[in-house]
Simulated scan of single mutants.
Amino acid sequence: MTTKTSQILAELADREAIRECLYRYARGVDRLDADMVRSAYWPDVVDKHLEFEGNAEEFIAWAFPAMQAMDQTMHLIGNVLIALHGDQADVESYFYGYHRITVDGRKMDVIGAGRYLDRFEKREDEWRIRERLVMTDWFREYSDSADWSMGLLGQRLDIGGRFPDDPSYTRLRFDF
């Protein structure tokens, strides 16, 4: 079944708000910005995420220590399908997560990919995640990582940081 153009036009603001919420979540976990992650979830969310199940605060307490131990992370969101049902929406979004970790003194890369199966809810004109089920469809563990000391093609790199040290916190203004 397809969605008619006139329906998408009528739903455009809601659809964009849902996409922005997904992007806030991805940015929040990569930058270790707890407030940004909170802004993507309703406080009474139920998130089933790998071996974890709990609310937003419990998710932050579970995920952030593991993420802090990683050198770098990057979560990309794609293929977002949205079905609006009044003040609720069923949303499937694909994710691709890069993780640079250290194991026994060796740098290695781990890539995980899958889908977020989300139920969004609109409260007081704001969309956030009310329920999340994370499905892992693919992953790959590389026994090594690139030599970052040489930079990309021998060029100096400005490596992204975490909250509040990443340059995006001083160069950009987000009012989320």
Rank of each mutant, 00 (worst) to 15 (best):
Y41T: 06
D71R: 12
I60M: 05
A56G: 14
D33N: 09
A26Y: 08
S168T: 15
R128N: 01
L9Y: 08
R15N: 06
R27F: 09
D14H: 10
E92R: 11
F163K: 08
E57I: 01
D47L: 05
R115M: 06
R132L: 05
S149V: 07
D175R: 13
I18M: 00
L9P: 00
A66T: 03
R27K: 13
L133C: 09
L84S: 01
K4E: 15
W148L: 14
V91W: 05
K48I: 12
R132F: 07
F174C: 02
Y23D: 04
L81K: 10
Y169E: 07
D87Q: 08
G151I: 05
R128M: 05
S149K: 13
P164H: 04
A26F: 07
Y94M: 10
M108T: 10
Y23L: 14
P65E: 10
G54S: 08
R27L: 13
R123G: 04
H99I: 02
A113C: 14
V46D: 04
G114D: 03
W148H: 11
E121Y: 01
H99C: 06
R106P: 00
E16F: 09
A66D: 07
A69C: 04
R156W: 11
A34D: 03
M70K: 07
L172Y: 10
G97V: 14
E53A: 13
Y98W: 14
I60R: 02
Y116P: 01
E131T: 09
M70E: 10
F120W: 04
M108G: 02
D35T: 07
W148C: 00
Y94H: 14
A13G: 00
T2I: 10
I129Q: 03
K107A: 15
R27V: 01
M36R: 15
N55Q: 07
T102M: 11
R27D: 07
R132N: 04
S39I: 04
Q68K: 15
E11Q: 12
D104K: 13
Y116L: 05
D144T: 15
I8G: 00
L84A: 07
Q68R: 15
F59E: 01
D137H: 02
G161Q: 09
V37D: 06
D158M: 11
M70F: 08
Q7H: 11
D118T: 09
Q68C: 06
Q68S: 14
E126L: 13
V29I: 15
M135V: 15
D90M: 04
R31Q: 12
S143Q: 13
D109H: 09
L81R: 13
P43G: 05
G105E: 05
F59G: 03
Y116R: 08
S145Y: 04
E16H: 10
G105P: 04
T136F: 08
L22S: 03
L32S: 02
E141R: 15
R140I: 00
V110C: 07
F64E: 07
F64W: 04
Y142I: 13
E51C: 04
